[in-house]
Write a protein that binds this DNA or RNA. Structure first.
Lengths: 198, 198
DNA sequence: GGTAAAACTGACCATGTGGTCTTTTTATAG
DNA sequence: CTATAAAAAGACCACATGGTCAGTTTTACC
């Protein structure tokens, strides 16, 4: 039990740092001082191992970082701003950011492993559905302009978030974050409910 | 000469489709009906091979797809809209989109291969510098609101473009493109020069 | 036709990979 | 203490990988 969890945690760390195909089962085992036997006692294969990591670690973390924080009846634009800000802050400090891990793995497995892609896309879909719902509710509650296309806004938000996380890796993450957030607010201003000036 | 080019073209195709670490030199050679000797006669190593692909193919294509089209004295927002639209259109039709390839490789090599990352980041920087310049010129020419932070806008544009390309791979690329473009225009409306209503 | 360099062949090597299997250790319950 | 099963060890295998190298073919030029 404890061993299984240690394996998954360490596995995710290494897969994230070096990529899935670039990390061998032995790498993970060496780090944990465990043997091949222990690994294949708990998991059917490397792929099965990774799928379990997705479900047990990645999915849960994405949920608690990107989905839970935007639930509620407040202004969704405020909530999303705060949520993105927090998520990117962990990235600035070089910690593991599960939102980024997700987009990273999406790139790595795209067109290469359908089984794993299916599981990753499930997480993306959950996020998307939740964003759309939140935005629609916000529109209903008068926070968003009534002409806003919520599906489109959700796609745009997810895109920009995934993208900025890719950019932040190369250089000056704090500056990238600041710039990104300023323009996100700019965009939000353009879709928020207009004050009637009569 | 011809062989070298064939190798690079096929190499990029396979690296793009299967990833760098997931594509063996033999894979490329098999496709071209060539031998190991031919490969190592032309290139020092697999890494050297890839670096040359970046410089000879990727950099040039990114330039002609994402940089050249936004040069000129017209409204930069119009030019960028058209440019993104064109770039994403090739992606909808499952062709190789070099903008996407770039962000894809950025993900694959991030933290794994510094030499290759350096070359990829060079391309990103060129794009960024060009975007910033174009936006600043647009501001000077009265197309953009004078309060716009051009560095921030460039970061935001690059982010959203990279991100949407990741999202488009999973499902319904045409719909994703449409939604993305609609919100991009929305964002552009919020940073364009305001008409004086007095 | 001769010759020298360029282009290419393919067998070979060391190393690393995911995965198997038998054996041993460890924990648990009667 | 012992029987039993869970957990872990680690030697082993077949195969793939990046890379080397001595040798052969092709090309271009005098």
């Amino acid at each position: 039990m404890a061993t299984m969890q240690r394996m998954q945690t360490t596995g995710l760390e290494l897969f994230y740092a070096q990529g899935y195909y670039n990390t061998s089962v032995d790498d993970i085992l060496k780090r944990l001082d465990l043997s091949k036997g222990a690994f294949y006692y708990h998991f059917e294969s490397k792929e099965d191992f990774f799928v379990q990591i997705i479900q047990n670690l990645l999915a849960r973390k994405v949920y608690s970082m990107l989905i839970e924080p935007i639930e509620g009846h407040d202004n969704p634009l405020t909530l999303i701003t705060k949520c993105f800000d927090d998520a990117m802050e962990t990235a600035v400090h070089n910690e593991m950011d599960y939102g980024f891990i997700l987009s990273n793995f999406l790139s790595e497995f795209n067109g290469k492993n359908d089984v794993i892609m299916k599981h990753l896309n499930e997480i993306v879909t959950v996020w998307e559905v939740n964003l759309v719902t939140t935005l629609q509710k916000g529109k209903f509650n008068g926070y968003l302009d009534r002409h806003v296309d919520c599906e489109a806004a959700a796609t745009f938000l997810m895109s920009s978030y995934f993208g900025v996380r890719t950019l932040m890796t190369s250089s000056a993450p704090a500056a990238k974050k600041y710039r990104f957030m300023s323009q996100l607010k700019q965009y939000f201003k353009s879709i928020e409910a207009k004050v009637i000036t009569s």
